[in-house]
Amino acid sequence: MASIQADPHGAHPPAEDLSRPYHERYHAAHHFKSRDHEFDSVKMGVWLFLGTEILLFSGMFVAYAIFRMMHPEAFIAGSGKLSVGWGLLNTIVLLLSSYTVAAAVRHAQTNNQKWLRINVLLTFFAGLAFLLIKFVFEYWPKYSEGKLPGKFYSYPYSTSEYEPLWWAIYWGATSIHASHVIIGMGLFAWIWLRARKQHFGPGHYNAVEGVGLYWHIVDIVWIFLFPLLYLIH
């Protein structure tokens, strides 16, 4: 108590031993009582943010449900033109990345710096692989065949009048999801740079945990998009 009263900010200890790694020296921001207090708050904030993400995507899912009900034939015709194989491969890539990001959090908790960095990097490359598969084997062929949303639709062999609407849903949902993958990769690059400087360890891994949770929500959205877009005919 005496030391707290000597320092009304309650955050800055008198002397710092700079030879110790950052995560050991880390002190919670001045308005938190402890690192645990900060960690709990950060985690709650991240969960709320994930709630907003679910609600953001819910708009796409509602649009999917309504238009599927209004124009089932367009959705059957459209989803038949997707390649289940590439979709499945991407699902596997994302599921594996879910493991690597969880492992990264675990290695931060156990102060295993090397494997923390490796797993963060693996997750980053899983995101990259997802995007490459998406763009090279799915977006690009569809783009060149004219299977595009709305007024850009020029595919000559469509079997349903409202097929452009299906492609609007497909491109809308997957592109918003892909933009989340890109953001996630940016976050993992940031985590990796910080991990190299030993910023994370048992007492301080807020950012790893938060970004990990974000990555899981990106995965889960895909877990729902994959059957809805690719599998249901």
Partner: peptide, 17 residues
Amino acid sequence: FERLFHIGIFDPRMGGD
């Protein structure tokens, strides 16, 4: 999207609502 690319989600002529 609708405004820039005319994707049709809100346009009844294209099956939208």
